[in-house]
Design a protein around this nucleic acid. Sequence first.
DNA 1: ATGAAAGCGCTAACAT
DNA 2: ATGTTAGCGCTTTCAT
Lengths: 344, 344
Amino acid sequence: MTSMDSRPAPGAVDVVARPTLDDVARLAEVSRKTVSRVMSGGQNVAPDTRERVLRAAKALRFRPNAVARDLRTGGTSRTVAFVIGDLTNPFYAAVASGVERALARQDLTMVLAATEDQVEREVQAVTAMLERRVRALLLVPISDDHSYLDGERELGTPIVAVDRPLSHAVSDLVVLDNRGGAALALRALVDAGHRRIAFVGSSSRLRPHAERRAGYEDVLRAAGLPVDEALIRQDAPDVDAAEAATGQLLALPDPPTAVFTANNRATAGAARALRGHPSRVVLFGFDDFELAQATGVSVVAYDPAQMGEAAAALALERLGRPSRTTEQITLPTHLLVRGDISPA
Amino acid sequence: MTSMDSRPAPGAVDVVARPTLDDVARLAEVSRKTVSRVMSGGQNVAPDTRERVLRAAKALRFRPNAVARDLRTGGTSRTVAFVIGDLTNPFYAAVASGVERALARQDLTMVLAATEDQVEREVQAVTAMLERRVRALLLVPISDDHSYLDGERELGTPIVAVDRPLSHAVSDLVVLDNRGGAALALRALVDAGHRRIAFVGSSSRLRPHAERRAGYEDVLRAAGLPVDEALIRQDAPDVDAAEAATGQLLALPDPPTAVFTANNRATAGAARALRGHPSRVVLFGFDDFELAQATGVSVVAYDPAQMGEAAAALALERLGRPSRTTEQITLPTHLLVRGDISPA
DNA sequence: ATGAAAGCGCTAACAT
DNA sequence: ATGTTAGCGCTTTCAT
C-alpha cells in the first residue's frame, strides 16, 4: 500500500473503497480498539469520544464487517443452514418459514440451499454451508448415505434432520406422526362406510411415505378389509403423475369410492383428476393446503412451521450441550374433515 | 498457546477442536501454502505431495474455512441476500426458488431473511446482510424510505428491488406488467358479458396493487362502464379479510356477477366465500396457484421463479459493471381462462 | 514445486 | 477510559 487513500478499488469506475475500522479511527483520531468498542455496544467509552466516533462512522458510511468479526471471535457465524429439496413445495416453504422465525428470535439468519432432490446437490450444499461455518445445519435428507456428516458432530456443529432420518448417521430429528395420521384418515373413511379406498403417493423409498402407507394398511387390516394392490399407487412423485395415476384408478372396472393421497403433491394431482368426474369419489389427503377448505377436501393436518421451529430449537439446544444424547421430536397430526365423506 | 495440541475447546465436553490449514500442514509436513494450493484447485504441486496433503486433510477431517478465505480474498462472500416478507406466501416462495436456482448456477448461496412485512425488521435484516458482506442484495421492499441504502451502491453492492420499486432510492428493478395483466383479465370478463365486476385486493399503498387497480379501471372506462366504488374493496390484505370482503360484496342488493381478485391471498379468500354461494359468480384472480386448474378459477398468470432469476441476473450483471445506469425489467403476464367465464 | 512473510478487518488480552 | 500487541485462518506477494 503506497499512499494513504489509495486502497485498491474493486475493479470498477466510480466505486469507492469500503471504509474499515481503521478509517474511522483515523478520522475520529482515536485507536482502532476504541472504535471497535463503540461499534459493539460500547462499554467504557467517554460520551464525547463515542460521539466523535459515531460521527466519523456515519460520515464514512462505515459498516462493520461481520465476516472479520466472526473470524476473530470464534470462527462461526450467526448463521444456520437449512438444506431442503424444493422451496416451491408449500410444505417445505412453510417449514423454512418456521425455521426462519425461530432463528430470527435469536438474532440468527437462515441460509437456505435447495437441492432439487439431487443427491450431489445435497452434498455440495451441505459442504458449502459447513465451510461457511454455520452455527448449525438443518436438513431434509435425500442422500441415502450421510456418513460424510459423521465427523461434523464431534466438531460441534449441531445437525438436525427434518421430516426423515439420516441414513447411516445419527442426529437429532423432527418428524411427523405419519403412521398415526394416515390411520386417522383411513379410520374416518372406513367408519363412513368406504370399502375400496385407493392410496396415491410417491416412492415408498421415502420414510414418511412408507409410514403413511403402513398407517393405511393398519386400518384396512384392523377392519378386516382387503389390501388391494390394484388400488395402491406409489409411482406419483409429482402433481402430473398423481393426476394420471388417479385417472387410471377411476377407470378401473371396480373403482375406489375414496382416494387417500399421501402428500400435498398427490392431493393436487388427484383433485385435478377428480374434477368433472361423473361419480362421487371422496378425496382425503395428507397435508393441509390453502384451498382445501374452499374445495371441500378433507385432510390430515399439522403445523409445518412448527416443524421448522422445533428443528431450530433442537439445534440451538444442542449448541448449548453438544454431548447430550440425540433427541427425536414427533409432531402430532389431526383431521380436518370438510363436508360429507360418506360414499355415494 | 502452550503445548502443540491444546487449542482451546469451544466450551464443550467431548467436542474436538476444529483442524486448520496449519494442522494439516504439520501432519503432511509441508508448508501452509502448499496445503492451501492443494485445497484450491492445486496448480503446481507435485503429485505425491498433493497425495500426502489430501491424506492428512482427510485424516483430520479438515474443512476449509470459507469465512477466513473470504476475508482474505476481498471481504465479500459467495453469498447473495434475498429479503422478503413472508415465505409462506407461495408467490414469494416461488420467487425465492428462482433466485436460489439462478445463484446456484454461479455457485452462489442465497441467504434469506423474512421480514413479516415489518419495516423495522426490513432495516434490521438488510443491515445484517450488508455486514455479512453479501455480494448483492435483492429485496421486496416494504419500508417507505430506503435512503438508508444510498451509500451502499457506491460501495459496490448491487441492489435489486423485486416486485416494487424502492422509495427515495434508485436501484435495478424487476416488476410484473401489473396494469396490463389486470386489464387482460378485465377485458376477458367484459367481453364475456359482465357489467358488474368487483375488485378485491389489499392496500392501494402497494404499487403493484395500485397498478392492478388502474388496469381494472382502464378497461371499465374504455368499455363505458361505471367504476362503482361499492364494488371495490382494498381492505383485504389476507385470506380471511378477503373472504369477509367478498362475502359482503355478494350480500349487496345488486351484487357483482364477477369478482376480480388482485392477488393470490385475495383469490383464496374469495374462493372460500364463493363456495356454496347459491348464484353463479365468476372468479378471476391475479396470480396462478396450484389448484386453480382443479377448481376452475381463471387467472392472470406469469412465472414467479422467472422474477427471481431475473433479479439474480440483474444483480450479477451489475457486479460486473457497477457504474452502468439502472435497469428495469418488466415481466409479461398472460391469461389462463379455465372453463366458462360468462355471467349466469 | 515449495516456502516465508505479510496482512484481510476485526477483537481479546493485557497494558496504561 | 483508552491504546498496544497479537492473532483468528486463510491467501497473496515474492523468494528460492
